[in-house]
Lab assay of single mutants.
Amino acid sequence: GSLMYASIFGNVSAIIQRLYSGTARYHTQMLRVREFIRFHQIPNPLRQRLEEYFQHAWSYTNGIDMNAVLKGFPECLQADICLHLNRSLLQHCKPFRGATKGCLRALAMKFKTTHAPPGDTLVHAGDLLTALYFISRGSIEILRGDVVVAILGKNDIFGEPLNLYARPGKSNGDVRALTYCDLHKIHRDDLLEVLDMYPEFSDHFWSSLEITFNLRDTNMIPGSPGSTELEGGFSRQRKRKLSFRRRTDKDTEQPGEVSALGPGRAGAGPSSRGRPGGPWGESPSSGPSSPESSEDEGPGRSSSPLRLVPFSSPRPPGEPPGGEPLMEDCEKSSDTCNPLSGAFSGVSNIFSFWGDSRGRQYQELPRCPAPTPSLLNIPLSSPGRRPRGDVESRLDALQRQLNRLETRLSADMATVLQLLQRQMTLVPPAYSAVTTPGPGPTSTSPLLPVSPLPTLTLDSLSQVSQFMACEELPPGAPELPQEGPTRRLSLPGQLGALTSQPLHRHGSDPGS
């Protein structure tokens, strides 16, 4: 009898404990919600809404976190579960008819179910419309201010047509639940991603989709105040780019002037030289400038040598048109050559190039014969006009050509200096018209024969001689050997007369 009593008592207590286990969990969670309300000092109306929603959600799901349970299964099984949970929507909604099984599984994985109690606001006026909503159960109302403009029910759709707008718009009203509602919502990016994977279904979906109420604000059109608020930074940046392009296009129409201050000032006329910023005076940081632009901040801005204009002085008759350009485009679109090309026009420029290279940067340069637009006047290309890779490749080509020119210049200078040193070592320090008596009659020769300089066969020296023939050397430049009979510069000019005159010897006659 005691054994029977113990078994009955144990079973009854276990049954009672299981009955009250759900209630215990409910009270535990309710205590957490109330502690949250007390800690954050939530006001009474919002506090009442929180408690009511918790009670309804507990009775609806029995305190089970559906998302946590669903995430515990593998992905393939999750797709089947989501397809079952959203079967009513996918079967009865017209846009989803005719979709393949794979497309429906992908869509079912992207849908999220939302449960809303009465009085809950789903979308506020001015919120971004980031999702498309399908009503599965219940009814909602749409308000503009305090005026109800629409009441939607089961199988209705609200949001915005995503295929017509590249960016999400703003809501033009509040969406509030009238009863307990079940909503299926899919985010904008998720829907577009699935439709991109199934393009054959995309056309059918957009053609058959009928949005019951379009929440997009109709005033959000390009150029409206609301649109400016939504895309303020983007609009200002776009206007700045367009104004920069218009100014650079105007600059290219004036090829007669070359400016070292950047493309923003290349198009300024002579009357605007004294102004601080020219056409860019209202925004000094709008356009890029070269490193020399920092010198323009000092006094005497109108007389600054940074602004270059072609000189009108005539060229000498024998002067060549100019050196070879550094870039391939210089032959086609440049009416002034790079300062480095002028360094190779003569030997005198070679000796004085490194010492006063900055001073020569603004000297007169030889002109190319074609009066085409200036290379320095070409505006900086924006990322939309020329690819970045093209600019980098041009810079690399320019750097390689500069290296080759520097190597060639160093070799030419070394060769010229070597020839000058050899000339100085071969010439005796001094010569006299009267020579010392020699031991015999073989001493009648006034000077030792001097062998002429070897013929220069280097390509670089031939180019130097060509430049010497075309360029007029300055007075202080050293002379180079030329073709024809060679003669030492330090010898007297009348050596031929010395050989014809008898030598005057000093000596005593033994017979006297």
Score class of each variant (00 low, 15 high):
126 G>F: 01
129 L>E: 01
130 T>H: 14
130 T>V: 09
130 T>Q: 10
131 A>C: 14
132 L>V: 10
133 Y>I: 03
133 Y>A: 02
134 F>T: 02
134 F>Q: 01
135 I>V: 09
135 I>S: 01
136 S>T: 13
138 G>T: 03
139 S>P: 01
139 S>V: 07
141 E>W: 01
141 E>K: 06
143 L>N: 07
143 L>W: 12
144 R>K: 13
150 A>R: 04
151 I>Y: 04
151 I>A: 10
153 G>D: 06
155 N>I: 02
157 I>L: 07
157 I>W: 11
157 I>S: 13
158 F>C: 01
160 E>N: 01
162 L>N: 04
162 L>Q: 08
162 L>P: 12
162 L>K: 03
163 N>E: 06
165 Y>Q: 07
165 Y>L: 04
166 A>H: 13
167 R>H: 15
167 R>W: 10
168 P>M: 05
168 P>S: 05
169 G>Y: 02
169 G>Q: 03
170 K>H: 10
171 S>H: 01
174 D>N: 07
174 D>E: 09
174 D>T: 09
175 V>M: 01
175 V>N: 03
176 R>D: 01
176 R>Q: 04
177 A>F: 02
177 A>N: 01
178 L>Q: 09
178 L>E: 02
179 T>G: 08
179 T>S: 10
180 Y>A: 09
180 Y>P: 07
180 Y>R: 04
181 C>T: 09
182 D>W: 15
183 L>E: 02
183 L>R: 02
184 H>D: 03
184 H>K: 11
186 I>S: 01
186 I>F: 01
187 H>Q: 07
189 D>T: 10
191 L>S: 01
191 L>I: 07
191 L>V: 03
193 E>Y: 06
194 V>N: 01
197 M>Q: 10
198 Y>Q: 03
199 P>L: 01
200 E>H: 04
201 F>T: 05
201 F>G: 03
203 D>T: 13
204 H>G: 08
204 H>R: 10
206 W>G: 03
207 S>P: 07
207 S>C: 12
208 S>N: 15
210 E>M: 05
211 I>N: 03
211 I>S: 02
214 N>Y: 01
216 R>Q: 03
216 R>F: 01
218 T>F: 11
218 T>K: 09
220 M>T: 12
221 I>Q: 09
221 I>C: 10
223 G>M: 11
224 S>L: 12
224 S>Y: 06
226 G>L: 13
226 G>W: 10
226 G>K: 10
228 T>K: 11
230 L>I: 14
231 E>Y: 13
231 E>F: 08
232 G>W: 10
233 G>R: 09
235 S>R: 11
235 S>A: 10
236 R>G: 12
239 K>L: 12
239 K>H: 12
240 R>Y: 10
242 L>F: 10
242 L>V: 10
242 L>K: 06
242 L>D: 09
243 S>R: 12
245 R>C: 13
246 R>V: 11
247 R>Y: 12
248 T>E: 10
248 T>P: 10
249 D>I: 15
250 K>T: 08
250 K>P: 12
252 T>F: 13
252 T>P: 10
253 E>V: 09
256 G>I: 13
257 E>I: 09
257 E>W: 10
258 V>M: 11
258 V>A: 14
258 V>Q: 09
258 V>R: 09
259 S>N: 15
259 S>V: 07
259 S>I: 08
259 S>F: 09
259 S>L: 10
260 A>E: 14
262 G>Q: 14
263 P>H: 13
263 P>Y: 09
263 P>A: 09
264 G>H: 11
264 G>M: 12
265 R>M: 11
265 R>G: 12
265 R>A: 13
265 R>Q: 10
266 A>N: 09
266 A>P: 06
266 A>L: 12
266 A>K: 09
267 G>R: 08
267 G>V: 11
267 G>E: 10
268 A>Q: 10
269 G>C: 13
269 G>K: 07
272 S>D: 13
279 P>A: 10
284 P>C: 06
285 S>D: 04
286 S>N: 04
288 P>A: 09
288 P>H: 04
289 S>Y: 04
289 S>D: 03
290 S>D: 11
293 S>D: 15
295 E>H: 13
295 E>V: 08
297 E>D: 15
298 G>C: 06
298 G>Y: 15
299 P>R: 06
301 R>S: 10
301 R>L: 09
302 S>R: 10
302 S>Y: 06
303 S>Q: 08
303 S>G: 13
304 S>H: 01
311 F>R: 14
311 F>W: 08
311 F>L: 14
312 S>W: 03
313 S>Q: 11
313 S>Y: 12
315 R>D: 12
315 R>L: 13
316 P>L: 15
316 P>A: 07
317 P>R: 13
320 P>Y: 15
322 G>H: 04
323 G>T: 15
324 E>R: 07
324 E>A: 11
326 L>K: 15
327 M>S: 12
327 M>R: 14
327 M>Q: 01
329 D>E: 14
329 D>F: 11
333 S>F: 13
333 S>H: 12
334 S>C: 12
334 S>Y: 10
335 D>F: 07
336 T>H: 08
337 C>G: 10
338 N>Y: 10
339 P>T: 10
339 P>E: 11
340 L>T: 15
341 S>T: 12
343 A>E: 10
346 G>C: 03
346 G>V: 11
351 F>I: 10
351 F>Y: 14
352 S>G: 09
352 S>W: 03
353 F>A: 08
355 G>Y: 13
356 D>F: 07
356 D>V: 10
357 S>P: 06
357 S>K: 04
358 R>L: 10
359 G>Y: 08
360 R>W: 14
363 Q>R: 10
363 Q>H: 08
365 L>W: 12
368 C>Y: 10
369 P>F: 08
370 A>E: 13
371 P>R: 09
373 P>E: 08
378 I>Q: 13
378 I>C: 11
378 I>H: 13
378 I>R: 12
379 P>S: 08
380 L>I: 13
380 L>Y: 06
382 S>N: 15
383 P>A: 10
385 R>H: 11
386 R>S: 12
386 R>G: 07
386 R>D: 11
387 P>G: 14
387 P>C: 06
388 R>F: 12
388 R>T: 03
391 V>W: 15
395 L>N: 06
395 L>V: 04
396 D>C: 15
396 D>T: 09
397 A>Y: 05
398 L>F: 10
399 Q>I: 03
399 Q>D: 13
404 R>Y: 01
406 E>R: 04
406 E>K: 05
406 E>A: 06
406 E>H: 04
407 T>F: 03
407 T>C: 13
407 T>A: 06
408 R>W: 04
410 S>T: 14
411 A>S: 06
411 A>N: 04
412 D>T: 01
414 A>T: 12
415 T>L: 07
417 L>F: 07
418 Q>G: 10
418 Q>M: 11
419 L>G: 08
419 L>H: 11
422 R>H: 10
422 R>S: 06
424 M>E: 07
424 M>C: 13
425 T>F: 11
426 L>M: 08
426 L>F: 14
427 V>W: 14
427 V>P: 03
428 P>Q: 10
428 P>R: 09
430 A>V: 12
433 A>N: 09
436 T>G: 08
436 T>N: 12
436 T>P: 11
438 G>H: 12
440 G>N: 04
441 P>T: 07
442 T>Y: 10
442 T>W: 10
442 T>E: 11
443 S>M: 10
444 T>P: 15
444 T>D: 12
444 T>M: 14
444 T>V: 09
446 P>A: 11
448 L>R: 13
449 P>R: 10
450 V>Y: 13
451 S>C: 09
452 P>M: 09
453 L>Y: 13
453 L>T: 07
454 P>E: 10
455 T>W: 05
455 T>E: 10
455 T>R: 10
456 L>P: 01
457 T>N: 10
458 L>G: 11
458 L>M: 11
460 S>V: 05
461 L>V: 08
462 S>M: 11
463 Q>N: 04
465 S>T: 08
466 Q>E: 04
466 Q>W: 03
467 F>W: 11
467 F>Y: 13
468 M>G: 05
470 C>Y: 14
470 C>E: 05
472 E>S: 11
472 E>H: 12
474 P>Q: 13
475 P>Q: 07
477 A>P: 10
478 P>Y: 14
478 P>V: 11
480 L>E: 06
480 L>Y: 15
481 P>A: 10
481 P>T: 13
485 P>L: 15
491 L>D: 14
492 P>S: 05
492 P>A: 05
493 G>D: 07
494 Q>D: 14
494 Q>A: 10
496 G>F: 04
497 A>K: 13
498 L>C: 12
498 L>T: 08
499 T>C: 15
499 T>A: 11
501 Q>V: 09
502 P>Y: 14
502 P>N: 09
505 R>N: 08
505 R>Q: 10
506 H>R: 05
506 H>F: 06
506 H>E: 13
506 H>L: 03
506 H>S: 13
508 S>W: 04
509 D>S: 11
510 P>E: 10
511 G>C: 06
511 G>D: 05
